[in-house]
Amino acid sequence: MATAPRFWRENPSRYNLVGVECHNCGRHFFPPRSICPVCHRKSVGKMEKVKLKGEGKIFSLTEVQESPEEISMQKPYVLAMVELVEGARVSGQVIDCDACDLEIGTPVRVTLRKLSEEGPSGIIHYGYKFVPLKEKAP
């Protein structure tokens, strides 16, 4: 079982979707990386950490019926690939909704939930999940 630091060091991105922006081309990436895959060497030193807004649309989705043991209590859950407004894509659960109400293109917003816990005495991991964004009435 992993020790606490492996998870802990990623908390800024897990809690607050901290990614990076390449100041050479303006592209956003999540999680942070130190080299832009488009600009290569020109991006070194120009990758700045930014908090992504956490809003986006479902790019693809699936309802997971067979899950890792430590999250089996959450089954079945919806896993989606979310395209954020900044352009980066992330994988995460979509919660507090019925799977049948979701489709490709459904707008979602980030929230924070328990991801998993290391048994009854271990660390509890928290991180991002998504909830469907209710369309505001015009």
Binding site: M73, Q74, I95, D96, T111, L112, R113, K114, L115, I124, Y126, K129
Partner: peptide
């Protein structure tokens, strides 16, 4: 609360 919610997630939701 759902299995993925606890006092911490509720506190975070309220605080946000």
């Amino acid at each position: 609360p759902s299995p993925e919610e606890d006092t911490i997630t509720i506190s975070v939701e309220a605080a946000r």
